[in-house]
């Protein structure tokens, strides 16, 4: 649905994005992550047809970003990271303005505006002035504006930045709902916990270069060739458990801290089950036994530290 082919953007000597290649399938929710100034917004602004590339090309729903910008604008809903609202307009007027700008006939507009207001839970704010809305409400309104022409692709640049925890959770729920509606979503954020739950894939960008792209599981697998095993036992059997695990050929390194043992494990699931059986049959009081997952934060930190070539 979204493709970037050798996209490069330079500002004089400064390379904002360097030879970026990316492919996002239909219905995917792609999380674009990277530190501030990494090139996320530049890439997003290019896809939103606001920026000319130095070289390269992009396609959205098969339409060329550089050759057919109007075609691209028809199929995308773009929410910038920083945006303002028009003063002196009511919420319904604001949505009507964009609906007319997207050439939606009047006969459909009333219904569509009602639907997006309901979806974004803004119906009670319909007659409020947009410049009087709170930050969270303005974010919702901007999302409502991006949905008014029912685009199959949503390009959202930091949609939850500056929101309070409640508004952030609500925004996350909304994005989940949009994902359920089958929209292809490209969402950027530097608050990684926001993306981890609902992104089907991620791309990590730093200093204009795409360092990794794919599902979180795939990237984790690329990053760690081994599994990390975490075992918590009742206190007096901790040494015994550590000794049994050291004997295990699949265990490479082991760390013991009080009654928690962390081990680097190279075996398969069957060997893991056998190990658990040995621990229990040896009288170890196993409190918890499981594989430690990498959080998106850890993935991000490992990638952007240059661990991945």
């Amino acid at each position: 649905m979204i493709e970037l082919m050798h996209f490069t953007k330079r500002y004089g000597d400064f390379v904002a994005v360097d030879d970026l290649n990316l492919s996002i399938g239909t219905g995917e929710v792609f999380g674009f992550i990277g530190p501030n100034g990494a090139g996320k917004s530049t890439t997003i602004r290019f896809l939103a047809t606001l920026l000319r590339p130095t070289s390269g090309e992009g396609k959205v729903a098969g339409r060329s970003v550089t050759q057919d910008p109007m075609g691209v604008r028809k199929v995308i809903g773009y929410m910038p990271d920083d945006f303002g609202v028009y003063d002196g307009m009511k919420v319904w007027e604001f949505l009507d303005f964009f609906a007319v700008a997207y050439e939606i006939p009047r006969s459909y507009r009333k219904k569509i505006i009602g639907q997006v207001l309901e979806l974004l839970d803004l119906t009670h704010k319909r007659d409020d002035y947009v410049n009087g809305l709170s930050k969270g409400m303005k974010q919702r309104l901007c999302l409502a504006k991006t949905l008014v022409h029912d685009p199959p692709v949503l390009i959202l640049d930091e949609p939850a930045s500056g929101l309070d925890p409640r508004a952030r959770l609500e925004m996350k729920a909304l994005l989940n709902e949009l994902r359920g509606m089958g929209k292809t979503i490209l969402v950027s954020s530097h608050i990684l916990s926001e993306l981890a739950d609902f992104c089907t894939s991620i791309g990590v960008i730093e200093r204009g270069k795409l360092l990794a792209a794919g599902s979180i599981a795939d990237i984790t697998r690329q990053l760690r060739q081994h599994r990390v095993l975490k075992v918590r036992v009742v206190d007096e059997t901790a040494d015994l458990a550590a000794a049994i695990m050291r004997d295990e050929s699949n265990v490479k390194t082991i760390e013991q801290f009080d009654h928690t043992i962390t081990a680097e494990y190279h075996g398969d699931d069957e060997a893991l089950a056998t190990l658990l059986g040995r621990l229990i049959s040896s009288g170890v009081g196993v409190h918890s036994f499981g594989e430690e997952e990498l959080s998106l934060e850890e993935v991000f930190m490992m990638i952007t530290k240059g661990i991945v070539n």
């Binding site: 028009y86 007027e93 964009f98």
Partner: peptide, 24 residues
Amino acid sequence: RTDLMPDGTNPVLDKELRSEIFAQ
């Protein structure tokens, strides 16, 4: 406006005259 814009309206012109001018 108390209702939606008619079809064919230039939304920018409508916005400038009806909303922006008295926004402050």
